[in-house]
Nucleic acid binder design. Structure first.
Lengths: 143, 143
DNA sequence: TCTGAATTGCAACTCAATCTCAATATCAGT
DNA sequence: ACTGATATTGAGATTGAGTTGCAATTCAGA
């Protein structure tokens, strides 16, 4: 299913769905959760598929443009991505004590952001909301 | 005022408020709005003050730790900072075409986030909301 | 003024990400 | 299947932000 969407995206730009691009796509969609380019590359290298580091990066950028993959954050050690097909958009709460990541979604929040963009005549395409603090467990533990 | 806070922060760690650190601090607080390390360095170099690139980076990290400066975003061209002393909390819209950063604030948005935290029994302390897209000018330019 | 810790600047370095380019693959049209 | 035009690949070079090692320097307190 993802490959069909990617296929379409590529041909709309006169690009081809090659073996290497297929490798990257399949590997990404076989991963559950977040990943970074280097690990993605290594996991492809260690499988029966193949693609150079350059191709992994190039394909990753195409996938982001196609909307199938999203860049979640830019850490000081590089970018982190996740695939979004079949996933609803969501935001994150991050516990600064234990590192737990809680996903959440609020339609109301999304609407509000849309309104704010309109007010500023800004054409928003994506957003990242990251709330940092302490999760339930860590609040208790601190007492 | 900022220098007093920084001074205190430094001595609490057994560090000194040197000329170079003073240069960086003063230059940052003379800038209105956002800045990146390279421009900060250049503006210091072109003024009567002085500090090497290394010192600028080192001081910048100290200032972030002290809470006087915040890192707003990590773009593909490096980090962007702003000084926070005397500033109310706000969020950012970032134009992916020209890099412009627009500040905004919404009480409603803040309330909503508080509610969401309560729902998840999460004790939120800070948050970062970054909306990426195209500013008014770049929307026009693209047509 | 002496002493030791902190600081500086330069250049070397790191590391993610991008680019170069020659070789290779792919597709459309014949 | 052949041909030409275009897209793609991988290996390694390159970029560029940010960090670090180190010898020389500054600074604060005794």
């Amino acid at each position: 299913m993802e490959s069909k969407i990617f296929q379409e995206f590529l041909s709309r730009r006169g690009l081809k769905l090659t073996k290497e691009r297929m490798s990257v796509l399949r590997q990404i969609f076989s991963i559950h959760g977040h990943f970074d380019p280097e690990h993605l590359y290594l996991s492809i290298r260690d499988s029966d598929m193949k693609a150079s580091r350059a191709s992994v990066y190039r394909t990753l950028n195409l996938l982001v443009e196609s909307g199938l993959v999203e860049r979640i954050t830019r850490s000081d050690k590089g970018n982190v991505y996740e695939h979004t097909y079949g996933h609803r958009h969501h935001d994150h709460m991050i516990c600064t004590a234990c590192g737990e990541v809680i996903e959440f979604f609020s339609e109301h929040l999304e609407d509000l952001q849309k309104m704010i963009c309109e007010q500023h005549q800004f054409a928003g395409t994506t957003h990242t909301l990251e709330i940092r603090g302490n999760c339930k467990a860590c609040q208790k533990r601190k007492k």
